[in-house]
Amino acid sequence: MSQILDVSGLTFRHSGKKRWLKKPEIFALGPIDMQVMKGETIAIIGQNRSGKSLLAKMLAGAVEPDAGTISLLERKYWSVKHRTARKRADITGIRMIFQHSSESMNPGISVGQILDEPLRLNSSLSEAERKDLIADTLVKVGLLREHFYFYRHMLSDGQQQRVSLARAILPDPKVLIADEPFAALDPTIRSQTVNLILRLQKEMGLAFVFISHNLGIVRHIADRVIVMDNGQIIESGKTETIFRWPQHEMTKKLVLSYQSLIPQQTLR
């Protein structure tokens, strides 16, 4: 396996500037070092407010880090703040699926137009080619080609999640980052989505980094687990190692709370 994503010394400091009638917030993320191999699945777990979502946004380039670099295939990956640098670079290497909410899909335009955007901006395909590619991708994520003309309000939550997935994989990325992709889905749709992502990962050789509170899924699909607390990586390693021999207090708590649901298993 070859390394495709290398993160070193990634740091984010909440702006410590004191504002009028407002105390400065104290939250710092990092420094974070992590490597992602080709085709690997990495889960980020941790409590709320441990900086997971922020880390995901920084990896995707939505938030500018205060220090540290992200390199994708040995080349620096720029955040949205660096418009001119991004124009020359390949910005479709890392794609993000946002946390599912009513705001993750534009209600005013059809699914086809939503999916057309990344291609229109980042490829030289003609309109007909783009439409064909979009139709193929819709089928790939388990929707129908007719969904091209649908609007957000006509789709269920699971279908909306599939559209977000389609949008993420359209420009053929190397790394897919997802912020709680399974949170809003019921168990059957969740399993379908998990299987879908696993299949796509196998087909496209994607590396998949995801945040989840569902340790069952984490244990099922992740190759490696990163445990975060208060903006720091407190433990990371192979999934089975983390689940069987957790070292850190916080990890032990998380794993215990998960395993107390499965009576036949005990911590060794």
Partner: peptide, 24 residues
């Protein structure tokens, strides 16, 4: 979020306005 994903795709202000904000 959908504006953020548009900007992540490399849309500039004009494109964000025309394709994402104006329809709404």
């Amino acid at each position: 979020d959908y504006i953020q994903s548009s900007t992540l795709d490399g849309a500039n202000y004009l494109q964000v306005f025309y394709y994402s904000i104006l329809p709404n």
